[in-house]
Design a protein around this nucleic acid. Structure first.
Lengths: 206, 206
DNA sequence: AGCCTAACAGAATGGCTGTTCCTTTTGCGA
DNA sequence: TCGCAAAAGGAACAGCCATTCTGTTAGGCT
């Protein structure tokens, strides 16, 4: 094959990224192997490594994807006229949460704890979303609440901060509420039995 | 050695768990190998496996530990007289956040996404903390705000929910703000600067 | 249409990881 | 104090996993 056209190349990249996303949502970032992604995407190792430098690169790409999708949703809501108020905005954002994406989102936060690149992606996206919220709340204060335009932005800042925080908490709750990972999609592996309680307290009198 | 006395056994368990905690805070749950924990604790594989069934068991134990520590801090604040209001309670909780513990806490959330046992631990602890907040806010409403005792509990519920959510979001921010892990297996973690004062929002959450 | 090159498939590999096994040591009960 | 069994040490091991390599194929450019 010659160098693929940009459109086709991007198509393959998203094909891989979405397969990875499904795997991550199912089994978590750490417990997803390249073999899993190969099985899920229907491609091969060679193909994947032709499009992503390594696994960390793929993780970063999906992290960007998940966060960007969220930011897009927010931007959509925030651009409406008249500008929605903070409570309504939060309600809409929460209602639009996709459990699978929420799981991967939380995993992304964890990854950000360790990987500086992912951390920057997360903080950038968070700041961007907060800025959009800030704009929206400011517009709402002025246009709907008839707040004094002079101090509106300043007044809106803590509100935007709070909406962002509450949204992220709801994201966490959605991730925890949704069912835990299933077995692998293909392959005859025995279903892993969940470990029983593992705490100490040996009551054996021996 | 015969079966160790209970006190000594628990001592070894916490010695291992705290070494693991440092490793997790430094490199993350997934990137921490048993070899790392061996090096950090100064013990051996045989010793570790005498006290914990496997790595997952150790992870679960540290997850419990981290969350329990947080719940204890909350319980301490909430038991004060007169009962602190939601804003002050949140400020205190946020000020008491330890960056290393916050990192491991976020990693715990991620693990809860995949491991049903950890998920139950996280949800149980979250519910317990929320219940404590609920009690505290109820007492505050009645004793400080002179709210009608009849509907106080009902009125306090959404407030407690919000405080919990805002606290968890601040935990996330602390985890992202703190420096990313080093590669050195150095011993004690140096305390990072605590979060600045969180501006109190204009009013109690509606 | 035809070539040329990069995408792709799939096996090979080497390093690392969790866990176990066996030996040595040592704390505790008697 | 003595002895024993459990705990600690640490090497060994088996399996997995990310990545690479070698052909093979097929898409775009001329």
């Amino acid at each position: 094959m010659p160098r693929l056209t940009d459109a086709r190349k991007e198509l393959r990249r998203t094909q891989i990224a979405e397969a990875a996303l499904r795997c991550f949502a199912r089994n978590g970032l750490a417990r997803t192997s390249i073999a899993d992604i190969i099985a899920e995407s229907g491609l091969s190792a060679g193909s994947i490594y032709a499009h992503y430098r390594d696994k960390a690169d793929l993780v970063r790409a999906t992290a960007r994807e998940v966060l960007a999708r969220r930011a897009d949703a927010l931007g959509e809501y925030a651009a409406e006229q008249p500008p929605p108020g903070p409570d309504e905005l939060l309600d809409r954002l929460v209602a639009a949460i996709d459990p699978a994406a929420a799981r991967v989102g939380v995993q992304t936060w964890s990854e950000a704890t360790t990987d500086p690149v992912v951390r920057d992606v997360v903080t950038d996206m968070t700041d961007r979303m907060r800025a959009m919220l800030h704009d929206c709340v400011t517009a709402w204060l002025i246009e709907v609440e008839h707040h004094d335009p002079a101090g509106a932005r300043e007044h809106a800042a803590p509100i935007a901060h709070r909406v962002m925080a509450l949204y992220q908490a709801e994201l966490l709750y959605a991730a925890l509420r949704s069912p835990t990972g299933s077995t692998e999609p293909t392959g005859p592996t025995e279903p892993d039995q969940a470990a029983e309680s593992t705490e100490s307290t040996e009551e054996t009198p021996s």
